[in-house]
Design a protein around this nucleic acid. Sequence first.
DNA 1: TATTGTTATACTCTATAACTATA
DNA 2: TATAGTTATAGAGTATAACAATA
Lengths: 163, 163
Amino acid sequence: MKTDRKSAPQDLANGSTQDLDRGLLPSLLGYALRRAQSAVFADFSATFVAAGEAVTPGEFGLLVLVDRNAGLSQMAVARALGIDRSTLVPILDRLQERGLLVRRRSPTDGRTHALALTPLGIKALARFTKLVRAHEARIASGLSTAETRMLLELLEKVRVASL
Amino acid sequence: MKTDRKSAPQDLANGSTQDLDRGLLPSLLGYALRRAQSAVFADFSATFVAAGEAVTPGEFGLLVLVDRNAGLSQMAVARALGIDRSTLVPILDRLQERGLLVRRRSPTDGRTHALALTPLGIKALARFTKLVRAHEARIASGLSTAETRMLLELLEKVRVASL
DNA sequence: TATTGTTATACTCTATAACTATA
DNA sequence: TATAGTTATAGAGTATAACAATA
């Protein structure tokens, strides 16, 4: 396949309202994924800002993980999230400063911290979960339930194939 | 729907190989999108590193855009990419330092820059495009062509619903 | 020796605000 | 006045390397 450079349109210079030629980009899965992700992230942020809350998708995922798995270590969380252990430190610092989560010394292994939500963190997570459900309903509002299920399956197939 | 906190499993402390309980996360579109994106991004990076090239998905998209739309201004590119004009500056700086792209003064509007690929940039983009096609084939390798087409459509519906 | 968490450091992406040149 | 591009600055996310405490 060729890049087809010759068929480029005329000079569009600056603030033209007309659509740009995106070439092969619209046929790329990676590009569609990035654009969808970006729009979904914007809706997530807007949902929380509108409710006077401040949580990122990553923080929400972390809170759910710690809530469901008592006494998780930082390494275990980092592995589950696919990030470096050093990356996790400032994220936990912030959550801890906000009183949502605590690092306890593990009684069985002095090197690790047993992570746990505080009572405040548990209540906050319940509020966040409601907001996430509203957000999810909005981003899936253009899809039937069958399509939503299908999309989840296809995304998982892509994820596995990309590992 | 409830959060179903009671049914959480036993203490998993640290480096347990066993899978964690991710609660409601696997049913969330936003979460599936983030995880797929992350894996796809990792494959993109690995593909370029293996070929001795260094381009991010964002840089590739920018290069395609400038290639297909001669004389585009920075504002037009920023709008098309959905980023602030100030965010674009260091990205263009890097591409220009690498000799792939130039900022020319627009003859018609002294405030704007007409962006264009250099001959080197055009050749580089051709190489990058081949790598992207290989990368795309890999991430879509778990899908039939019908599924790939379907996934593109569903992602676009999600993007539009999230705006 | 190996692992966990932390710190120091660095790079990218993102933004807002203020500045300049031009319209 | 308004717009385009730049700079200064700041915050979040990502990483690597080195260190202390513990195993």
